[in-house]
Amino acid sequence: MNKLEMTEAIILAKQAKALSWEAIAASMAMGTVWVTSACLGKNSMPENAASKLCDILELSEEVKAALIAYPTKTWEQQVPQDPLVYRLYEIVGVYGDTLKEVIQEKFGDGIMSAIDFTMDVEKIEDPKGDRVLLTMNGKFLPYKAW
């Protein structure tokens, strides 16, 4: 079973059980964003977490093996058409250079890790329209000179 087939099986089981990603992640005592990412094939899951997920969704050993397998992290190089994903690209397009400048001014020459990293999504209720709060927390990795 490949990652795409795994994702399809997980989504079908999730829908059949009427579970949210948040409920699945909470029952695993793990982060919602990370669990969802692994279920969509972008991260590998440790064996114990894969077992828990497969128990919750009543999925096969094939799905468990695919969850544990290391992914190839690639994505389309085209601008995405989904409006929400497109807006995230737009944010990076408009503010990417600014974020780079501000981060490097505060930390020095380096990058923010996407490996030693967490991300949370919160809903902030507001009478003028609910707000989305994305929190990205990555370790700073300075470039090495030698």
Rank of each mutant, 00 (worst) to 15 (best):
residue 89 Y to R: 01
residue 69 A to H: 02
residue 66 A to R: 03
residue 110 G to P: 01
residue 19 L to P: 00
residue 121 V to C: 15
residue 10 I to P: 00
residue 10 I to A: 06
residue 76 E to M: 14
residue 61 E to Q: 11
residue 89 Y to L: 11
residue 134 L to F: 15
residue 107 F to H: 06
residue 71 P to E: 05
residue 135 T to H: 00
residue 43 N to K: 06
residue 78 Q to L: 09
residue 134 L to H: 08
residue 19 L to D: 06
residue 1 M to Q: 12
residue 52 K to Y: 10
residue 8 E to T: 11
residue 123 K to F: 08
residue 62 E to W: 09
residue 11 I to T: 11
residue 142 P to T: 09
residue 6 M to F: 05
residue 99 L to E: 07
residue 129 G to E: 05
residue 5 E to V: 11
residue 7 T to A: 15
residue 60 S to H: 13
residue 116 D to T: 09
residue 90 E to R: 12
residue 123 K to Y: 06
residue 48 N to C: 08
residue 30 M to E: 14
residue 74 T to Y: 13
residue 94 V to A: 10
residue 5 E to A: 14
residue 91 I to V: 12
residue 82 D to F: 10
residue 30 M to P: 02
residue 130 D to G: 05
residue 142 P to W: 08
residue 49 A to I: 07
residue 122 E to H: 13
residue 89 Y to F: 15
residue 12 L to A: 15
residue 130 D to C: 07
residue 114 A to G: 00
residue 111 I to F: 07
residue 110 G to K: 09
residue 59 L to M: 13
residue 25 A to G: 10
residue 141 L to T: 02
residue 26 A to V: 12
residue 52 K to L: 08
residue 10 I to M: 03
residue 49 A to F: 10
residue 137 N to V: 00
residue 88 L to E: 08
residue 36 T to W: 09
residue 8 E to G: 04
residue 45 M to C: 04
residue 25 A to H: 04
residue 102 V to Y: 06
residue 15 Q to E: 14
residue 136 M to K: 01
residue 45 M to T: 03
residue 113 S to E: 01
residue 97 D to W: 00
residue 10 I to R: 00
residue 90 E to I: 09
residue 37 S to L: 11
residue 61 E to S: 15
